[in-house]
Simulated assay, not measured.
Amino acid sequence: MLGSDFAAPLGGTDLLRGHLLLSSTSAGFDANGDMTRISAERGHKLWSEWRRRSEDWNNSAQYEQLSPRFANDNGFVSQTGLRRATVHLNRRLPAQTLALPALGDWAALEADELELQLRLMQSQTLDDPQQAVKSGEVIERQLQPGFWFAAARNTGVWGHLGLDQQRARSGGPLHQPRTLNLGFESNPNAWLTFLSAELSWGQRLDVEADRLGRGASLLLQAKLRSPLPWGWWLELEQQLGQSHVRNPLGQRSYIEANAQTLAVLHLSARDSLRAIAQQTRYQRVAEASLAAADERSSHLSLVFQHRFGLSRLFSLGLVSVLDKTSQQRDTELFAKASFAYQP
């Protein structure tokens, strides 16, 4: 892979930046899914952005193009074979007090920053004869008016309407989901260092069924930090998420749920013990054209780490993954030493 990026300030309020990546790979997969050598395939990724920030506006526009044969081995590209244009328009308003008169003065909130926002996005396919995909088919359109404001304790609150269009598969219908999206984040105090919640509710797209259904998704996250006896410190992070979409009969067509707990026990300035526990579940009810599914998995990771210096450390750990559907468990033990050498 070969690439370059650029950034060019345009006066005191404007910035132009972007990057271009070129890829070439001879790694492919055969009919059984095993890796094999193939004729070299070349691809590219182009991304550019214009941004303007002033006292009254915070606007940006991006254009992105990813060719069908772009080798995205870096893991930061979720989809190829498309071009996407995005515009963010944010009108900045003066600081003010937000209140609901019916609730009295106790419900008043001082908004240090306030923005009225509009997001516009369109994503279309690029020509890909190998996958029988024609150029110019709309993958997704977004029209999302909303707001955002910031208050004390690094508190941010936002909300927007999703007046979007989405396609589940090439050649399929272009659906028009309608959602209400709300969220907030804050740093409440010294022991509850971070708290956030995001909710999306309304008409959502069930990709496998290729239809709309009423549904919701909720994501909660909290981070805690607390001293313990013997000079130890505990950092704890908890994430919980669930989403579902209902079918025409009113049943929950599918449910996706996940939970993750991250705990770091600081034994000293040099020694720490980290544990990560994850649980995931996917359920789908049987329908005329869809098979029932109940897939569950758990992941456990334990790592002890000792630092010898700024760039020298030793790690000893265990990773265990259990597929609860097949009751198959994979366990790995590892030891790792790393250091940085400076002549």
Rank of each mutant, 00 (worst) to 15 (best):
L82W: 06
D206V: 02
L205P: 01
G18D: 03
Q239I: 00
L120A: 13
L120E: 08
W148D: 05
F29H: 12
A197L: 01
L212Q: 06
G231R: 09
W158T: 05
S123I: 06
N189I: 03
Q144D: 01
F147P: 03
T13L: 05
P177L: 01
S39E: 13
D164N: 15
S170G: 10
L93D: 02
E295S: 04
S338Q: 09
W47Q: 07
M121A: 10
P248W: 05
Q242V: 12
D5Q: 13
Y254M: 02
A216N: 11
F76E: 15
F29N: 07
G162T: 02
S301Y: 09
R153C: 00
R225C: 01
D14Q: 08
A71T: 11
P94G: 03
N90D: 14
L199V: 01
F304N: 04
A107K: 01
Q165K: 09
V133I: 15
Q279M: 06
L195K: 00
V264A: 11
D330T: 15
E115K: 08
D112Q: 11
L126I: 06
G171D: 07
M121R: 07
W232I: 04
E235K: 05
S289W: 03
E140T: 14
L249Y: 12
S289K: 13
D34C: 02
F194L: 05
A107S: 15
S289V: 03
L302D: 08
G171H: 02
P173D: 11
E256Y: 14
Y254S: 00
A95P: 13
